[in-house]
Amino acid sequence: MKKKDNFLSVFIVFLILALIFYLLSKTSISKMPSFILTSVFISIQSASRNASIKIFSMTFDSAKEDLKEENAGLIKKNLELQKITRQNKSLMDQFETTNPKSQNLISAEVVGAPSFMPGISNPEFLIINQGKEAKIAVGDAVVYKNNLIGKVSKVSNQLSRISLISNIESSFTVRIGESGILGIVKGLSNGNILVDNILLSEDVKVGDLVISGENVEEDRSGFAPGLVAGKVVSVEKVPSALFQKAEIKPLVDFSKLTMVFILKN
């Protein structure tokens, strides 16, 4: 009986404490202790993640990784060539700058990337070691080279949470292939991405590159155009349906990212 009372009293005391923390988290009072705790643990978090990635890359075939990297570089060059061709064809000089020129990149280290199977499956979100102090805001796009990774969904003073483009809540417009076919991205739970709302009359092929469309909001948040979202891996075209769908795969392995860049439009 005494033990049961003990359980109840400890539970009630700490439940009240947790609820106080919950309410305080909406004010600025709790920011100081969380700031100190984050400062202490951030380096340990970062070091342990880097070490685990090294172990994984030692375990798996490194030559395959080199080829993947080379392939990503070639795809990037190919994309640039496609862009130039399209621009020449369109003869519209005023729209030449598909990527905003006043871009600012802020580098950030990935300190947390919880996934179902660490190192194998894609993470559900990323935690980076930059926050409000580095002028990062909710809605900022996150890239790696010219690949779109996701957008900032939450910010604290020293940390930020990134919702990946493969996230189930992700949705933005994209352009597919050389002809720039329009579609809307929706995240799938297996780490792949679905492009929906593609007109049935359009010709989408497996292997076509998918780049971000015009998604920048009035407050300058959102994805800048021309960033690589992935490559088409399958196309679902049903004549009776209103639209066709395409499944795309990102060119970057999100689980192995150690560094990302925040794009300030």
């Binding site: 609820l19 106080i20 923390f21 919950y22 305080l24 978090q45 935690i127 604290s156």
Partner: peptide
């Protein structure tokens, strides 16, 4: 509390 700080959740939600 620690997990909420690192995963940027509302502090106290995981603890509760």
């Amino acid at each position: 509390i620690l997990l909420d700080i690192f995963l940027l959740r509302i502090i106290g939600s995981t603890a509760v």
